[in-house]
Amino acid sequence: MWRSAWCRALALLLATLPAGAQEKRSGYDDAGPQVRAMQDDDMANPAFLWVRQGEALWERREGMAGRSCADCHGAVEGMRGVAARHPEFDAARGRVVTLEQRVNLCRTDYQGAAALAPESDALLGITALVGLQSRGMPVAVEVEGAAAAAVARGEAFFRLRQGQLNLSCAQCHDGLAGQSLAGSRIPQGHANAYPIYRLEWQGMGSLHRRLRACLVGVRAEPLGRDDGLLADLELFLAARAAGLVVETPGVRP
């Protein structure tokens, strides 16, 4: 009896703990030593195969405009800070734009080229390359003003119990972070290392792919790539990660 009473008290406590009540930990801190060693060493980090593809794409003239990323932006080092402030509320478009979407807006609007396909090596490579330029910088998205409503929508989704298993992101990543779920440690669910190389995928994946796995895991409807709520959620996750540094491109188990 004592056991179930204690567990009930614990479950209640966990369900009501606010975000940030625990010390912030990146998924890196929860990963094993081998995974951390892979992320620490650019020569051992498989994500750098994608970064190299991104470098080639940065210089390549594409589309009707025949312009490369470099033609407009110069050396890629000039992208320092961009990933740290994305997703961002785009006033002209009246919505939140993620880094992936930003890249594809440059493709379609300025290069006159087709958008890069979701989860393609090209899109993962270019976002990994741009993300890398902010590595070590604190995640610092704008959450005031026009962005505030989007952050609030993202947070509401994060707290929504959903799917056939009726679990919210917050229940796992605030309440149960650090616990063992079927043998794997539940991280706090910060998105400061994306795109990542994931050993389980034996490949690179975007944050959208990660979120899809969590949503399908609770048997919920995944969010579409162009759903505004996805960008709002990604913005909320970045706001929630404030204080952690950009790790892109990360390695995860």
Binding site: R8, A11, L12, L14, A15, T16, L160, R161, Q162, G163, Q164, L165, N166, L167, Q171, G175, L176, L215, V216, R219, A220, E221, P222
Partner: peptide
Amino acid sequence: NAETVMPAYYSLDGLVRVG
């Protein structure tokens, strides 16, 4: 326990965004 994280295995009450 209304706040439990344990799924309801034989109820559809209150479920949203089910795949």
